[in-house]
Design a protein around this nucleic acid. Structure first.
Lengths: 190, 190
DNA sequence: CAGTCATAGGAACGAGCGTACACATCGCTC
DNA sequence: GAGCGATGTGTACGCTCGTTCCTATGACTG
């Protein structure tokens, strides 16, 4: 009598935590194909859930994207602040920044891509602007653990530019180049 | 006999230079609504031409966007190089950069928006990547008229970050802040 | 164990999309 | 002025999209 109903490829009849999984899957899709390709259907396919499930858990696509980017910013900002908190001096903070830029970002470009996608999406979508500004202010506050506000702001802008160049340029700056630029901008540091 | 045929709202029966006009209109639409909203139909509506005209003049939408961004890069890069060429010293070049960032860009944000849109579109569209790289290399070459290659590269990255912050932040840096950052990064300058 | 309600599932609608194509019209060459 | 090739114009196809809606299911409450 063929015990199992044969087509049990999606055994998710009861699925607590699906909402969470959808947010993560949305980030995967955005990182892989860009925010323009992050449609209800694409995310549903990637998460292996029916289409209707998305509109049940999120009132609109913008809501879903907003939740996804909020999660991305939370993780990235926490990890960044952790790095800055761990540094014992401004010099150590700059070195941590170099590692952050060469390791985390350039190694696995996922975070970098997500951040740039957020920037662009926010430029047109007011609901995402708050998320972007949260990210900018948190990263600046992390830098201010070791740098005066003016320097923190300038370093923040430089880092943003480096990230963008790394994402799009064919020959991104190497670690020495990045270290050199950061130190020149930060000035003498104890 | 109602001399005119009444509905003469689009008297473009013979229209040389329409191709050129379509490229310009495409840039207008991208600047206003973003590259994601730059569809055949949106551009046709903005240019007041029938839909079929677009596929006649451009083999595909990507072709049209590519032509548009190429024109944008050409104009922006020429104007920027003009500014750099006009500067008589590295110090004057930095000051021209401040003006460029506060005047041209922040004043009418059109160029800024177009450039950021290009960055993002290029991240996913290989046909546009060449245009982005052309822009990056030309702006760097303009900077190298007055700065050594290493400094030029760093300044280029900082400017990119400043542009991004200006586009998205609620409180962009003012002229003094920008001038200060540029000089700190460029070091002593004759 | 019956009833209820949050969740799961899938089909459908109307709209916008890129592109293809058939037909109209005009400028130009002989 | 006939013919032809370049250009202009409108319609249609097939697809994907966000969203809506109805039904099915099963965990929990009493």
């Amino acid at each position: 009598m063929t015990a199992a109903p044969a087509a049990a490829r999606r055994p998710r009849r009861h699925d607590p935590g699906r909402r969470d999984r959808l947010v993560d899957t949305a980030l995967d899709v955005i990182a892989r194909d860009g925010v323009a390709a992050a449609s209800h259907r694409a995310i549903a396919r990637a998460a292996d859930v029916p289409l209707g499930s998305l509109t049940y858990h999120f009132a609109s696509l913008t809501d879903l994207l907003s939740a996804a980017f909020t999660r991305h910013v939370d993780t990235a900002a926490s990890r960044f602040d952790e790095r800055m908190r761990a540094a014992g001096s401004p010099a150590a903070a700059l070195e941590a920044l170099v590692e952050h830029l060469t390791g985390d970002l350039l190694g696995s470009s996922r975070d970098l891509v997500l951040t740039v996608e957020l920037y662009v999406a926010a430029a047109r979508n007011p609901a995402l602007r708050a998320v972007t500004q949260d990210w900018m202010s948190r990263s600046r506050r992390s830098l201010e653990r070791h740098l005066d506000p003016v320097t923190a702001r300038e370093i923040d802008a430089l880092v943003e530019g480096l990230v963008l160049h790394s994402a799009l340029s064919t020959d991104p700056m190497d670690a020495d180049g990045i270290r050199n630029a950061l130190h020149r901008l930060a000035g003498p540091v104890r």
